[in-house]
Write a protein that binds this DNA or RNA. Structure first.
Lengths: 138, 138
DNA sequence: GAAAAGCCTGAAGTGGCTTCAGGGTCAAGG
DNA sequence: CCTTGACCCTGAAGCCACTTCAGGCTTTTC
């Protein structure tokens, strides 16, 4: 299977596949006489594994760790648990941040319902005012 | 006011201040005889404005737009409204994504309560299985 | 007069790719 | 046999928002 077919069958761009190879997330593939990469079904699985981990917001470094853990024949999965716990905490924290951000943005947006002149725009006035307040706080 | 004091009074790193200058978000400051940057209270405000926008998850490009709008003496604030609406939509979408992610991560984490051997770890089994399923779907 | 604190510049590194320039390979059609 | 087009190759640079680094100048303090 050449790189184009692998790309089509996984939805991963060719350039990204080559990038993963450079980053050693995918093994160095065989080559044809014409120097084209040749992939095995094993490689397809590995790439899907990477994709799934990425869809769970793992960094490539974390994916590397998971691959390592998976391939360790009798290692403990403590690392895997720790990694997931950390990731869950990260996502929770980010969600909280974004909720606050939603409130702030909606409140700000409410300050200018009608398109008006900049100098009387509630949003810009508030942006300037908030900068002032930040100053007072420090 | 030298760059160090500006940094201390805003909580922005010196390097970041210089970066904002290169990116033309801050005006080119005056210099002392010894070639040190000299900032005015106006510059402090501008930097705070940038910080506040960044805290609302605006990109530097968006901050640039806001500064432009703010400084246009009689422009309309339609741009500002549009920018905020877009940002709100972005944040909402991201929050939805992260909620789904939270579910997935927690479910995955539930598969391995006790640290065990990798080969029987529910998490790794599930990660491999999910990769398989993705394959079937395409 | 020497050390320490503060400042300067330009370049490179971060992550996770994407894009680009400039090629080589291979099958099908004329 | 030659050309066209699809496919593939490499290495380098670009993206964002910074951060870090190397190497050197200025100012203050003892």
């Amino acid at each position: 299977m050449q790189i184009g077919e692998l790309a089509r069958s996984t939805g991963v761009k060719i350039e990204t596949i080559r990038y993963y190879e450079r980053e050693q997330l995918l093994p160095v593939p065989q080559r044809t006489d014409g120097n084209y990469r040749l992939y095995s079904p094993r490689d397809v699985e590995q790439l899907r594994f990477i994709c799934y981990c990425r869809s769970l917001d793992m960094s490539l470094e974390e994916v590397r760790l998971l691959i390592e853990a998976r391939d360790a024949p009798a290692g403990s999965c403590l690392t895997v648990n720790a990694l997931l716990d950390e990731k869950i905490a990260e996502v929770d924290a980010r969600v909280n941040e974004l909720h606050k951000l939603q409130d702030q943005l909606r409140q700000l947006r409410g300050l200018c319902q009608q398109p008006d002149e900049v100098k009387t725009c509630g949003i810009l006035m508030e942006l300037n005012r908030s900068a002032e307040i930040d100053k007072a706080q420090i």
